[in-house]
């Protein structure tokens, strides 16, 4: 490690916040999914940084598991987007309110 752990954790926090703002503000489900990926990746960086600090492989294993879950999540999310497109629905998360109370 040429620079200390706090640098990596700070970068990770900034990326997480950027992704969070994207998820909160964007209405296109595609961009929401992309912002979610930014959040997941920032957490991966945290896990790998702590793994290097502790000196074990546990954090890296966890990061790989997160990658697998992210792949599954993207498959379902993009499948929903394709299904919405086929049904001629508007690709806008604000318009999807038929299940709201």
């Amino acid at each position: 490690m040429s620079v200390g752990l706090p640098f990596y954790l700070s970068v990770s926090a900034i990326l997480f916040a950027i992704g969070l703002v994207g998820v909160l503000l964007r209405r296109s489900p595609l961009t929401t999914l992309l912002s979610l990926e930014v959040m997941l990746n920032s957490v991966n960086l945290t896990l790998v940084a702590f793994s290097r600090q502790v000196g074990g492989s546990d954090g890296q294993v966890f990061a790989l598991v997160v990658m697998g879950i992210a792949a599954a999540e993207v498959v379902v999310g993009l499948g929903l987007v394709v299904a919405m497109t086929r049904r001629e629905m508007v690709l806008d998360t604000d318009e999807l309110r038929s299940m709201s109370g």
Binding site: V48, R52, Q60, A63
Partner: peptide
């Protein structure tokens, strides 16, 4: 690249 700096080549 950041992960490479952290010696996590495989990840």
């Amino acid at each position: 690249t950041l992960m490479l700096l952290l010696d996590a080549q495989f990840v």
